[in-house]
């Protein structure tokens, strides 16, 4: 029974694992292109399992930022996981103890969360752990291969692979921005702020991590104030 549940979780996670593999290949290639060792790039993916946070983290490592700046940036960029973990916790109910929760929390990415929430049967520990298996392997393995290939590939291919993560971010942002006006406003605000922090003299001296934090917090706060989400969406 437990084994069957685990396998069911693994099967459900496979499409996400395949997607992660291709994207993290880009992360690995980019990390070595910026001077990281292949092992360190792989270690980042194996311990973090998050795209946006790692990407920002890489920028900060290259820039030689302070540790507090790293922590603050991760807190803001990954704050959404707190909401997802809360929702997942509600759905899991009180049957599941603390120890399995410590493990399940590690795998709570946007996509795994979406799969877990879409489940109509009661969630079990083996299912949730199985769900995380291929995404974890895909994300870490893709980074490893990308990092190894990155040092072998010609410069022009490496440069091209460097936009892969940006492409993924655009693919995540554009469809909801097209459908929901409030998301479009959040995107537009963040865009304008980000340009100001890049091009306006004085403002462009603000470090990369802090400017991402300011753009994110300001745009999200203005939109939360202008367009509060309806109560039903809590469970979504």
């Amino acid at each position: 029974m437990k084994w069957k549940e685990y396998c069911r979780g693994v099967r459900r996670g496979v499409p996400v694992g395949v997607g992660y593999f291709s994207v993290s290949f880009g992360f690995g290639a980019m990390a070595v292109a910026q001077g990281l060792k292949w092992l360190d790039a792989t270690l980042i993916s194996a311990t973090n399992l998050t795209s946006a946070g790692q990407f920002a983290g890489l920028t900060l490592i290259i820039a030689g930022a302070g540790l507090w700046e790293m922590i603050l940036t991760q807190l803001v960029i990954n704050s959404r996981y707190a909401l997802m973990s809360l929702a997942l916790s509600q759905k899991m109910g009180s049957r599941i103890g603390v120890l399995p929760r410590l493990a399940i929390a590690f795998f709570n990415t946007d996509e795994i969360f979406a799969l877990a929430m879409a489940e109509t049967q009661p969630l079990t520990v083996p299912f949730l752990l199985g769900l995380g298996l291929t995404p974890f392997l895909g994300w870490t393995g893709g980074t490893l291969l990308g990092a190894l290939a990155g040092s072998a590939l010609p410069e022009m291919v490496r440069v091209a692979l460097g936009v892969m993560l940006y492409g993924m971010f655009i693919a995540i942002v554009v469809p909801p921005a097209r459908q929901e006006k409030p998301v479009l406003v959040a995107v537009a605000l963040a865009l304008v702020l980000s340009c100001l922090f890049t091009w306006v003299p004085g403002l462009n001296r603000v470090s990369a991590g802090i400017s991402i934090v300011i753009c994110t917090v300001a745009a999200a706060a203005v939109c939360a104030w202008l367009f509060p989400i309806p109560d039903e969406e809590v469970e979504a």
Binding site: F55, A56, V76, V163, F169, A177, P182, S194, C223, A224
Partner: peptide, 26 residues
């Protein structure tokens, strides 16, 4: 407010990370 704020964070954050940085990534 907090729930709404967290709903908008990913979009704002991914946008700020992508533009204009993508212009200088190649």
């Amino acid at each position: 407010f907090v729930r709404s704020f967290l709903h908008y964070v990913p979009y704002a954050c991914l946008t700020a990370m992508t533009f204009p940085a993508i212009l200088y990534s190649t």
